[in-house]
Design a protein around this nucleic acid. Structure first.
Lengths: 207, 207
DNA sequence: GAACCATGTCAACGAGTGATTACTTGGCGA
DNA sequence: TCGCCAAGTAATCACTCGTTGACATGGTTC
């Protein structure tokens, strides 16, 4: 279904090759176009429902080039994972107010326009391959660890650890609920809508 | 892969036929065994990675019987969905303390032993078929609506609605995080571990 | 015991998938 | 201009999946 465009239609715009005159043989641009298409598909559909033919079609590129640049579907998935930006930016907020503020922005509708959905969803998709899945788990645990650190919880404080993880779970849940059910008003909530409740939650969990 | 057991090995124990002497031709038991195996697979692996051959093998039943009893994979999925028990029991708790109490039990590790994972996960799996997915969405929205009612929010109060939905998101997030990442200590948290933090969250969101 | 039908078995199909190979083409350096 | 190699193409293979129809068999009814 959707829009198959195996024809040479010039909508490989995603490539990002700067010059106006688009070249035809550009390995870097091809690779990038594939990556972007792959991230989009993997995030929206998950690993299994994403077919390499569709990714190649989205990127306006021949199927066999996926093997050339990423070797396999698994390789493509790994590369897509690796390109996922760090959540909550480079530095984590260091106090509760800033944390709530950051969360309300990161979790608002329409954040991550270049991803369509919240990139954390990429980390939830089961690939079926244990090597890939462990990579996935590792990334999500790293994320949690940073939230823990930001919350000021020591490694030894089990209760505070649990509370920080509940905050992570809330973020994951928001992204999941929004992507799978159009639950309103949460689905379209802006950062202004979220900041109040999130501040309350952060305070009650980590206060 | 896995354990194919097309032979007549007597591990159709799941069937639940009461008498000790297991009968060989028992439509109801066969149907139930298929349902149970299907729920398990769908919940752990999602719709796509669940193959009918594996479900049939788990149930110790011939593949073609799925068509007989459920007509198609979609039919099997629908039946599995329909059998999902209502979350939070028959009556919703009507005050915040009771709600926190109920949530801590429903979301504790090892609840739902007959499902393995929290059944809400079944509602998050995309099937790819729009008719099935709308069923799925409907079920999850019904669930949210009941939480809203329990929270005492009126339909007109958008902020309270949002706050109740955040509570739903938290529950979903806990189930998802636990199923996809073994995040500790959340992964093994008991209802005793959860009750404190959850009480705080419920109060801060709906208080 | 015979007829009959629900239950269960078997083997195969067609579609779609990831993977792979042999081939063609474009563009750059000498 | 001419090789040469990276970039891109087309075709196909091997395999798994859901689905299907023809067939076997048990057990109930008369």
């Amino acid at each position: 279904m959707a829009t198959r465009k195996t024809d040479g239609s010039p909508d490989d715009a995603a490539a990002g090759q700067p010059a106006g005159g688009r070249r035809r043989r550009d390995a870097a641009a091809t690779r990038e176009a594939l990556l972007q298409a792959a991230r989009d598909r993997f995030m929206r559909l998950g690993y299994d429902r994403t077919t390499l033919r569709d990714v190649a079609a989205d990127a306006g590129v021949n199927l066999a080039l996926i093997k050339r640049y990423f070797d396999s579907k698994e390789g493509l998935f790994k590369a897509a994972l690796a390109g996922t930006p760090r959540f909550l930016g480079g530095e984590f907020p260091q106090d509760r107010a800033a944390l709530a503020e950051a969360l309300s922005h990161q979790l608002s509708a329409g954040a991550w326009p270049e991803f369509g959905e919240h990139p954390v969803l990429l980390l939830l998709r089961v690939s079926g391959d244990e090597r890939v899945d462990s990579l996935r788990r590792q990334a999500l645990q790293d994320f949690s660890r940073r939230v823990l650190e930001a919350s000021g919880a020591g490694r030894d404080d089990d209760e505070r650890l649990l509370r920080a993880e509940l905050l992570v779970a809330l973020g994951v849940g928001i992204a999941v609920v929004r992507s799978t059910v159009g639950l309103q008003p949460l689905g379209d909530a802006t950062s202004d809508d979220l900041i109040g409740p999130l501040r309350d939650v952060v305070d009650s969990l980590l206060g």
